[in-house]
Amino acid sequence: MIDVAQLKAHAKGLLEKGTVRTVFGYRKSTAGLLAEPAGITEAAQADDLIFDPSCVQNLALYLVNDKKHQAEKRSDDKRPVAVVAKGCDSRAITVLLQENHFSRESVHVIGVSCEGTGVVDARKLARKLGNKKALAVAFDGADAFAVTTNEGTQSIAAAEVMAERCLECRSAHPTLSDVVFGEAKAERGLHTPFQAVKAKIKESEEDRWAYWSRQFDRCLRCYACRSVCPMCYCDECVVDSISFVIAPDTTAEEKANRIKWIERSPAKSESAMYHMVRAIHLAGRCIDCAECERVCPVNIPLRLLNTRLEMEAFETFQYNPGSDPELPTLTSSFRDTDPNSFIR
């Protein structure tokens, strides 16, 4: 069981000594059940840090955002930032290191193991509780959550309200860390990995298109999935013409001649294109934190789309994203034994 007091003490120590600029962690949210991400800069605030099953967010995103902010501020503070990372978050950090987004020295990874239970899925929990409202959720032994509602505390089997991705989790323990809190438990294995994808593949082509066409049709193109993804760090996004950088010396002609790969209107064809571009850009990079699916306001099963190529990476190319920062990325490497029979 993870000792949060140790986590707080460690963060406090780092901030008191001034060895890190900020500690990104979780604190109790004022709105709703889920914890909120917090950037802590003062040692006194370190007591706010928590770690419980409501800490669902992937904090690797804040490392990416922090880098952008530091560049905007033209800050010369070169101290590292500390980040609280679960197993999946640590894999995201590994992928970012693999891509040289930042150096290993610039980040201090405080690994936390979510052990047997993983994190909670707020939608599943709400469904389970019916008309009771969950106020807090805590770890309760190896395979249960203690959920506090307005009618008292009850124990719920973790497998019933655990996030989908946690059921399939293959490495709950951080693979990359400077310090770890919690017991090492690598595999949870409550569900077979990629089972949703495998079930979907078995359906007919028409059914699959009918399914995805319904999903893409719903998309509002709010780009929440892109904003929450730690891997979507490009300043200019090919699918969004308003993100194109306009410098003082960009001529009107240059602006006019930029390729618009897709229209900005949320038409089905354009949204389909957007989601496919994102899926292909995440091939071999997606570490299955399922944040895109969680933040989607219209419940598009984005995790299903992204895990399709993760399954291919894992089963065909034996590539597991975020396992080793020294490894070349999936699409920047090849083997002689790669599939060739699909080519005529």
Binding site: K200, W209, W212, M276, R308, L309, A313, F334, D338
Partner: peptide, 22 residues
């Protein structure tokens, strides 16, 4: 072409998955 093979394979799998005709 080795890089292409891997990349195109992934694109093909994705297109098949969303239900474009093989």
């Amino acid at each position: 072409n080795f890089y292409a093979r891997r990349k195109i394979y992934l694109v093909q799998k994705l297109l098949q998955f969303i239900g474009l005709e093989n």
